[in-house]
Design a protein around this nucleic acid. Structure first.
Lengths: 126, 126
DNA sequence: CAGGATCCTCCACGATACTG
DNA sequence: CAGTATCGTGGAGGATCCTG
């Protein structure tokens, strides 16, 4: 592990940085939060989609795929006839939930302050 | 689109959700981390850019603007002749650092597991 | 029900050049 | 040094149809 860079900051491919980039997606953190806070760490695809207003089936699947590849969740195919797929938080993912929940809680705690400041998240001047 | 579903989950415009979307950007979390962990909560523009390999001047400014609008940081113009602008974490921003640092720490702690799982962050197969 | 395959839109992001 | 303006691009993200 070469950490000798004086001022060179963290390399672009270091693990923490890749983690932060993992969450630089629209749905990753919200899927994680929903899975944990609303479904005790396990839920089927349809339920997840219903729990995430606005997400498209494509993005749900894609996000779940990425999270699975990152070891945050695991995929379980229960049945066969009408496919019943359940996603569960892995131990790794469960440990990762804590920071996200803190961020979420921070948002709730400061909702008023945030509402007062931000007129609209997407309303950027043109 | 029918709104007001009974189990419609969290509304799309609730504060926590907007917070998570705030961090669904490439640089927000990294600017926050850098500002806190490497510069004790205050740094000038140039230093920030040098601390964030790969960021463009445009994105730096834009990210800083958004963070300022969200109350995470404050902007201080020190001099006049050669502009010397310093950005500082606000109390709000400082409290927000904790979750991000946890996420960052989680990445460091599980770097090996993450490296083993993820072949390449940008190499998405379809 | 889960999710692949397609097509398309739009904006996040980057490179460059310019101002004060 | 800090910031803006402009332009171009990739790819995230959405809608729709189709499969087992």
């Amino acid at each position: 592990m070469d950490k000798g860079s004086p001022e060179a900051a963290w390399r672009e491919d270091c693990a923490p940085r890749r983690v932060l980039e993992l969450f630089a997606t629209k749905w990753t953190s919200m899927v994680l939060h929903t899975l944990h806070a609303r479904h005790q760490g396990a839920a089927r695809t349809g339920l997840l989609q219903r729990s995430l207003p606005g997400i498209s089936k494509k993005m749900l699947t894609q996000t779940l795929r990425d999270m699975e590849a990152s070891g945050l969740i695991s995929r379980h195919v229960d049945s066969v006839v009408p496919p019943a797929v359940t996603y569960r938080l892995t131990p790794l993912g469960t440990r990762c939930v804590e920071p996200v929940e803190l961020l979420y809680g921070w948002g709730r705690a400061n909702a008023d302050a945030l509402d007062a400041l931000q007129p609209r998240p997407s309303a950027r001047r043109r």
